[in-house]
């Protein structure tokens, strides 16, 4: 334990290309980059599928079967095929982040009470308006939920990507392992746990801030009438 405290208080570990600020910055950069690309691809597709109801089964099956894909294997295979560097691991992170975002967006839009959508249509809203002003805000809790699990997935996988020479906080674990420096490994894993927990809390706060207050009591007091869809 003393060695870990020593590692954290050693000024050498807080500066330079292998310092905590740099490694943390790298990790955040990979996470944001992969999440943004995944969101740009998955959210529009999820919205469209949720709105039209077409291909929903395929999305859910795809998301479920991709969960079985060993992320470490995908990373290693991509690095082996396309060489080490930034692109192969980022591609792997994006591929792994798409299913949760897609499933969350689809489920969010799909779970919106059909009566609300019908009311919007009755009020004269066009399809685009229904999607952006009714389905999107109503589905936001599940959409952000999908982004949250994708983010955790990316942070965890970016850690493993240090094995295929990516930077970020995972470097401390991989580098520490190669020289049997257990203090460095432990410090890296503590930093990673903190990063993941803080990020998730921030996203939870964001979820609370962005979701319309009108949705909260309604969600708690009555279960969503999912079956209405089959009846209508």
């Amino acid at each position: 334990m003393n060695a870990i405290v020593e590692w954290f208080t050693d000024p050498a570990n807080w500066t330079g290309p292998d310092g905590v600020p740099t490694r943390l910055g790298e990790h955040l950069f990979y996470t944001l980059l992969a999440l943004s690309i995944a969101a740009l691809i998955a959210i529009p597709i999820g919205l469209w599928i949720g709105h039209t109801g077409r291909g929903g089964f395929a999305v859910v099956s795809l998301a479920n079967s991709l969960r079985a894909l060993p992320t470490f294997g995908v990373l290693v295979l991509l690095a082996n095929s396309f060489g080490i560097g930034l692109a192969p691991p980022i591609v792997a992170l994006v591929v792994l982040a798409i299913p949760p975002v897609l499933a969350g967006t689809y489920a969010g839009v799909q779970a919106v009470d059909r009566a609300i959508v019908d009311a919007a249509r009755g009020m004269g809203m066009g399809e685009r308006e229904i999607l952006t002003r009714v389905e999107l805000p109503n589905g936001l809790p599940l959409i952000i939920g999908g982004l949250r699990s994708a983010t955790l997935q990316i942070i965890a996988t970016a850690t493993i990507a240090a094995y295929v020479a990516l930077g970020g906080l995972g470097r401390y674990i991989i580098d520490g392992l190669s020289v049997r420096d257990f203090a460095e490994m432990a410090a890296g894993s503590i930093l990673l746990a903190l990063l993941a927990i803080v990020t998730d809390l921030v996203l939870a706060g964001l979820q609370r801030a962005l979701v319309s207050p009108g949705l909260r009591p309604a969600q708690a007091s009555r279960p969503r009438p999912r079956r209405l869809r089959a009846v209508a």
Binding site: A156, I173, F182, A186, A196
Partner: peptide
């Protein structure tokens, strides 16, 4: 359990022996 679930797998595997 929510907090534990957020901890990246490799970090947890390295932390547990300690």
């Amino acid at each position: 359990t929510g907090l534990l679930y957020t901890v990246p797998s490799l970090a947890l595997i390295v932390m547990l022996p300690l």
